[in-house]
Structure formats: structure tokens, C-alpha cells
């Protein structure tokens, strides 16, 4: 559906993105993840034919973004970082305008507007002036304009910024609903969001793809160590030291009231050892469980590793 090949973009001497390659299949929900200024917005703007790439190309549904940009603009719906809203218009008036410039036939404009008003739950503000709406509602109007022509592909640049927690949950739910019938690319710097919505994650750092995989794939590929969480009722003061002396343990971090986070080598089968130690010394074991690597850990690892991201560490899912 979307094929991006060696895409680069420089603003003067500064390279915003470097040799980005990825593919998105039909019906997928892909999350762009990266710190601020990583090149997420640049990539999305290029895909939406707003700015040209310096090098490389991309094809959407087989159309080249430079040569057939008009065709592409027919099949994508774009929600830019700042929702493009005319503050002086009413919601209904604005959506009617958006429908017309997105070439929705005149006799279907009203139906299209009703559909997105309902989907984005903004029927009750349809006659209000956009400039007077709260940020959350404005964001939803922005989402509504992106969907007005029922595009095959939705490109959403940070769809949940500036919203309160309840609105964030609603927008996420909306995106999940949309996922069944659309191909979606969304960007975010909020990790849990991506874990909740997306099937696949592309982590961008300093203009390069640092990793690209499904969530499970990323987690397992990035696992260089295992972590165990041990909770006891009455571990003695020297317990952490005893744990450290076990074979294949990398580090032990005592947490409050008899709890420890133990990092050990992969597949070391350390649970047995730890359990035996705790039982023999009567620490009163309450809980012993492996701790999964969260996306946050992966993200931090990828984006803060010394010397920046390394190509060797890119786990390719293909």
C-alpha cells in the first residue's frame, strides 16, 4: 500500500531524515515513534505531498508521490500536527468546505458530513464556531476533516497532543475503530499510545529508522537480559548481597520493603536459584515473576544508546 524507498530530506545543511525505507500493508496500523525533532512530521508531510523529498521516493497505492501527487491526495486523509481549521467557520460549514475540496460529490456532502460528525462524536457542536471550541473538540474536527472523503489511508500526525486524558482515550478508541477499514499511519511521542493502537512500530531517531517491528518482535529482539521481580515478607539486610553472588546475575536493585529487581543473563533459569535461596533462608517469598521489557525501555535503549542508533541492531521482521 505504501512503499517508502531511501527517503531523505535536508533543510539546508541539516538532514531531517536520512535514507528512510519502510512499507505499510493494507489495513495495517503503523505507529511512528520518536523524540521531538526526530523526523516524524517531515516523513508524513512528504507522504502527503506537502513538501518534496531531497532524495528517494515513495509510492502510495502504486502512485509515485512526485509524479502522481493529485491521485495520492485523493486517497489519503491527512491530519497535520496543527489541525488546519478555519477559526471563523462553524463545524458544519467547515466540513462542507472540506468535503467539496476533497471532491466529495455535491449530493453526498451532507451524508459524508453526518457520518464523520457521528464518528468523531461532534454532532452537538456542529453549529458552533470552531475558534470557540476547546482544543479537544478542535482536534476531533481536524480528524473529521481528514476522514470526510472516506480515504483508504489516514495519516495522523500526533493525533492526541494537547488533549486531556479522557479525550485521549476517546480519540484512541476512535482510531481503533477506524483501523478495521483503513490503513493508518500515526505518529506519537507517547509510548503507551502506540502500544495500545498500533500493530507495528517504526522508531525514528535523529532522522533514521532505529527499529521497525511488531511490538512482540521488538520486545524479544531487544531483550539482552531478563529481569525478575522478587517480593518477600522479611528479607534480611544482606539479602541483596546474597542475590548478587548468584551465578549469571548482572545486577540487583533493592526496592522498598523486601522487594528486589534482579537483572540476569538470558535463559539463565534463575528463578529456581532465587526461589531456593529465598526458601532456604526463610525470607518469606511472596512473589517471583519475570518482568517484560516495555516499549518505553526499548525506546530509551534505542534512542539513548551510546553513539546513537546502530544499524546492526535493527531487527527486521521480514
Amino acid at each position: 500500500m505504501i512503499e517508502v524507498e531511501n527517503l531523505s530530506k535536508s533543510y539546508g545543511p541539516r538532514q531531517a531524515i536520512k535514507n528512510i525505507c519502510f512499507q505499510v500493508n493494507k489495513g495495517e496500523v503503523v505507529g511512528f515513534l520518536g523524540p521531538n525533532g526526530a523526523g516524524k512530521t517531515t516523513t508524513m508531510n512528504i507522504l502527503c505531498c506537502l513538501i518534496p523529498a531531497s532524495q528517494g521516493t515513495a509510492r502510495i497505492c502504486g502512485h509515485d508521490i512526485f509524479e502522481r501527487s493529485l491521485q495520492i491526495r485523493k486517497i489519503i486523509g491527512f491530519l497535520p500536527e496543527t489541525p488546519p481549521l478555519y477559526a471563523e467557520m462553524t463545524v458544519a460549514g467547515f466540513l462542507a468546505f472540506a468535503a467539496r475540496i476533497r471532491l466529495v460529490p455535491a449530493n453526498k456532502t451532507a451524508a459524508a458530513a453526518d457520518r464523520v460528525l457521528e464518528k468523531c462524536r461532534i454532532q452537538d457542536v456542529r453549529h458552533r464556531i470552531i475558534g470557540r471550541l476547546s482544543k479537544g473538540y478542535q482536534q476531533r474536527v481536524g480528524l473529521a476533516q481528514a476522514m470526510i472523503h472516506d480515504p483508504q489511508i489516514l495519516i495522523l500526525d500526533e493525533p492526541t497532543t494537547g488533549l486531556d486524558p479522557i479525550q485521549i482515550i476517546e480519540i484512541r478508541k476512535l482510531i481503533k475503530d477506524l483501523a478495521s477499514s483503513h490503513t493508518i499511519i500515526l505518529s506519537s511521542h507517547i509510548l503507551p499510545e502506540v502500544t495500545q493502537i498500533c500493530q507495528r512500530v517504526i522508531i525514528i531517531n535523529e532522522g533514521e529508522i532505529a527499529a521497525m517491528d511488531s511490538l512482540d518482535g521488538l520486545t524479544s529482539a531487544m531483550r539482552k537480559s531478563e529481569r525478575l521481580h522478587l517480593k518477600t515478607r522479611n528479607a534480611p539486610p544482606g539479602a541483596a548481597e546474597r542475590l548478587r553472588q548468584l551465578r549469571r546475575v548482572i545486577s540487583v536493585r533493592p526496592e522498598d520493603r523486601g522487594q528486589f529487581l534482579i537483572e540476569c543473563e538470558l535463559d539463565s533459569g534463575l528463578q529456581d536459584e532465587v526461589a531456593r535461596l529465598a526458601l532456604e533462608d526463610r525470607w518469606g517469598i511472596v512473589e517471583l515473576k519475570p518482568v517484560a521489557l516495555t516499549l518505553e525501555d526499548i525506546f530509551l535503549k534505542l534512542t539513548t544508546e551510546e553513539g546513537g542508533p546502530h544499524h546492526e541492531t535493527i531487527p527486521d521482521h521480514r
Partner: peptide
Amino acid sequence: KTKTINLLLSSPIH
């Protein structure tokens, strides 16, 4: 300034 130009430019109009 208000970035609404992006709406026009990403629409399928000349």
C-alpha cells in the same frame, strides 16, 4: 500562519 494552507495543499485540487 494558521497552517490551514496544509488543508488546501493536501487536497486533490490544483
